[in-house]
């Protein structure tokens, strides 16, 4: 697996798109702290990047890479290499490169300029989102044989998780505003990894605003460590479920 990851990392590292993305992220990550006097505000701007841009790039890029490397995967599959070694090698290679870019562009400045619980929770959530969206990208790619359809679906998936889901949730809340909907809303948030990551970060950074709610549910959830622990666990689940689904499919798939 390490061999395969190494070769994927090596291959990605010379990819022009990866370089462009890396430079973009470096500019944003360091630039935000250079422009902003307040680290709090900078962390918020970076949260937007992590919740919006990064899932998109991860999904599309990982998907594209899988489709473009199909022949190579085929060649490797003809070697005495297990399918799971191959699959996790590809996955680990992709996540390693994305995470490295993330850590260099956002992690380092955060650790330098805002080394606190908030910064760390941002990094944790960001890294897990990379994990999750790479897994989702592979899941989509192994299910759709056709590249155009696969990438199209990945794009839809991104739109859905990035804002459509929350829009629907908002409509739902407007419709049922007269009912005690706090608990269902909190439950529904767990079905969107972007929301879970968001909740994870703001339960550390802005629990004060969330505590202002009258609902006892939120008090209970965000009052102590509970919200952080639960959302952290749900995030981890979100990473593991698509990954294992993709792995199963890949294992039984005609390459």
């Amino acid at each position: 697996m390490l061999n395969i990851s190494k070769i994927i990392i090596w291959d990605l590292w010379k990819n022009k798109a990866v370089i462009a993305y890396g430079i973009l992220m470096l500019t944003i990550g360091w630039g935000v702290f250079a422009i902003e006097d307040q680290p709090e505000k900078a962390v918020l701007s970076l949260l937007r990047i992590i919740l919006f841009v990064q899932p998109l790039v991860t999904l599309l890029f990982a998907g594209m890479y899988y489709y473009n490397s199909q022949e190579f995967i085929l060649l490797l599959a003809a070697q005495p290499v297990r399918r799971n070694t191959l699959f996790f090698g590809v996955f680990a290679g992709l996540t390693a490169v994305f995470t490295l870019i993330f850590l260099l562009s956002i992690g380092l400045p955060v650790l330098l300029f805002s080394p606190n619980v908030e910064g760390l929770s941002l990094l944790f959530a960001g890294a897990l989102l990379i994990f999750i969206f790479t897994a989702l990208a592979l899941l989509v790619s192994v299910y759709f044989a056709d590249k155009a359809r696969g990438l199209g679906f990945a794009l839809l998936l991104w739109a859905f998780f990035a804002f459509v889901y929350d829009g629907l949730l908002l409509l739902f809340m407007y419709q049922l505003a007269d009912y005690p909907i706090e608990r269902p809303v909190l439950g529904l948030l767990f079905f969107n990894p972007v929301d879970v990551a968001r909740i994870f970060v703001i339960s550390k950074t802005e629990a004060s605003a969330l505590l202002g709610l009258s609902g006892a549910v939120f008090q209970d959830f965000f009052g102590a460590m509970k919200g952080t622990v639960i959302s952290g666990c749900v995030l981890a689940t979100w990473a593991l479920v698509p990954l294992s689904l993709a792995y199963r499919k890949f294992n039984r798939k005609d390459l």
Binding site: I7, E71, A78, Q79, R83
Partner: peptide
């Protein structure tokens, strides 16, 4: 996968990582 140690394969179209 160990049986594939005995196998050499040459595909119809070979595509390798371009870089």
């Amino acid at each position: 996968p160990d049986y594939r140690r005995e196998l050499g394969y040459m595909p119809q179209v070979s595509r390798f990582p371009v870089r």
